[in-house]
Design a protein around this nucleic acid. Structure first.
Length: 286
DNA sequence: AATGTATTCAACCGCCAAGGT
DNA sequence: CACCTTGGCGGTTGAATACAT
């Protein structure tokens, strides 16, 4: 009995025991092996056929899901990096719950994983803040505060590493992080130069936010090295300003005219600065 | 140590679109 | 044109695990 079966406490469904229907529930190591062997030889696709010919008493859908989310080579497991989290926030602000599209920009990550992240982490934040995750209030905060602050955190971390490594550039800038080249090479509109965010911020807002204490300032337990290249490239190409620009916080480029941040605060946007709740968004696993 | 509660994430479900007959 | 099969996607569930009391 493998660990997965143990985890869920059962090895087969009632219907299977009765000799009818297909297996459901957790996959066994043997099933994984059968499916992986079959796909290695015959390739992906034709999932119903694969299920039958591999000797799996599973639906094609189940086989496909198991392959894509778990067995497929290059599936990245483990915690999402800060960069990945930032990218998810950015992409979600543009694409909404189109998890597969978002996942395409995060090599090795599955739509299921990203969806789970959003539901367990981001929606939790919204819930704690007592606002709907789809509300304008929450989206404004995401775009005008959280995303810029997270990117600033990444930038600051990058600079910190650069200071420490004076003899050569940090290796993570070119190799340790998977650069989602698909966004730029596939003609994706990920960073559409014509994209105009539906919210914006005034210069007064920028001043007000610049005056805020950074919620990251006392955070030192970063474990995920940053990589400014992708963000720099994509931002220069698109909607935001560059992380290296004069303002030092490219994310503000997403927020131009129109949002009265003081009014936001007065109207219950008291969480715009982030605070402990926001920190927990990306610090629980970092 | 025991119990209750919250969180995580693998897997399933239902719907839809595309393609074939 | 209608029907069927298949693949893909987003939403939801539920067991295991982590954490709090």
């Amino acid at each position: 009995m493998d660990s997965q079966v143990r985890k869920y406490g059962y090895a087969r469904t009632e219907s299977e025991d009765q000799g009818m229907g297909v297996r459901k529930g957790p996959w066994t190591i043997d099933e994984d092996s059968l499916l992986a062997q079959y796909i290695t030889i015959h390739g992906e696709g034709h999932w119903n056929t694969a299920a039958r010919r591999a000797g799996l008493n599973r639906t094609g859908k189940s086989c496909r899901l198991r392959w894509l989310n778990y067995l497929r080579p290059n599936v990245r497991r483990g915690n999402l990096t800060l960069e990945e989290q930032l990218l998810i926030l950015q992409l979600h602000s543009r694409l909404g719950n189109r998890w597969s599209k978002i996942a395409q920009q995060l090599p090795g990550r599955t739509d299921n994983e990203i969806k789970n992240y959003w539901r367990t982490r981001v929606q939790k934040q919204a819930k704690q803040l007592k606002c709907d995750v789809n509300s304008k209030q929450f989206r404004d905060t995401m775009r005008c505060v959280w995303i810029p602050q997270l990117s600033e955190k990444i930038r600051a971390e990058s600079e910190s590493h650069m200071d420490q490594l004076t003899t050569s550039p940090p290796s993570y800038c070119s190799s340790q992080i998977d650069i989602p080249v698909a966004a730029s090479e596939s003609g994706s509109d990920l960073f559409d130069p014509n994209f105009i965010p539906d919210i914006s911020v005034s210069s007064a807002l920028s001043d007000a936010l610049d005056a805020q204490a950074s919620p990251w300032s006392d955070l030192t337990d970063y474990q995920n090295p940053p990589c400014g290249q992708y963000y720099s490239d994509s931002m220069q190409n698109g909607s935001g300003s560059c992380p290296e620009n004069d303002s030092g916080s490219w994310g503000w480029g997403w927020c131009q005219d129109g949002v009265d941040m003081q009014a936001m605060e007065q109207e219950g946007y008291g969480f715009i600065g982030g605070g402990e709740s926001l920190e927990s968004l990306w610090n629980e696993e970092n």
